[in-house]
Design a protein around this nucleic acid. Structure first.
Lengths: 108, 108
DNA sequence: GCATATTGCTTCTGAATTCGTAGCACAAGC
DNA sequence: GCTTGTGCTACGAATTCAGAAGCAATATGC
């Protein structure tokens, strides 16, 4: 049976952001996309980059991300699609924000 | 026992973005923050906005988000902190991106 | 040919997380 | 008193994830 047999949660609200938040709001999904931001990675390299994420979940996430047209499988492994790269570019400000956020957290 | 008894996954990598991705990469977390973007919401209003999300998980997420200094509880319910509002502001481009993404998905 | 290694991926079992319902304690209104 | 609404908790069931093992396919060396 397919791992993708139901529509993305919230997709029927008609608000694309809901579908996106739901897709990215699954364990490891954001991390997987993040690790692919610079270069394509093989299945096992991706698994190692995610510090031992189990292959079953990785395979499931890759299937979801390919269906979402954010990741594609090519000769050199898995890579972001142009659309996926667009999305990651939008995360750069968030990365910078996270630095300041971490400092505030340590300050308590 | 506390619902928050272990450090955020990936936090020991020293890269704040990992801790953030891990925090937001839990079911409903991004959605909860999103629903609070405009106005404070009461516990039950928030639960309704998330289409019947179970109160146990909502309570857990609120605890995590409060610990992360992104959400605070006040007179008028739960609201984003200034820091949380900063983060949501960074999501506006992502929302616009999601519109185009949804169109591409429907096109197959 | 044959062994070895590496790859993508599957399968399995037990643990962790999440769900959904019910319900508690409290406050306000009547 | 009784009802209504609130934030929140308890608990069993369902889902998801983790971790280890292993399989088929391909490549490499001898």
């Amino acid at each position: 049976m397919s791992t993708i047999d139901k529509p993305v949660r919230g997709s029927r609200s008609g608000r694309p952001i809901m579908a996106l938040l739901d897709l990215l709001g699954r364990r490891w999904t954001l991390r997987v996309v993040w690790e692919l931001r610079d270069e394509p990675l093989s299945f096992r390299a991706l698994q190692a980059a995610c510090e031992g994420m189990s292959p079953s979940v990785l395979n499931q996430r890759l299937a979801e991300l390919r269906e979402a047209l954010l990741v594609e499988a090519g000769e050199s492994g898995y890579a972001l699609t142009p659309r996926g790269r667009e999305l990651m570019a939008l995360f750069e400000p968030i990365q910078r924000w996270a630095e300041a956020w971490a400092r505030a957290q340590r300050a308590g």
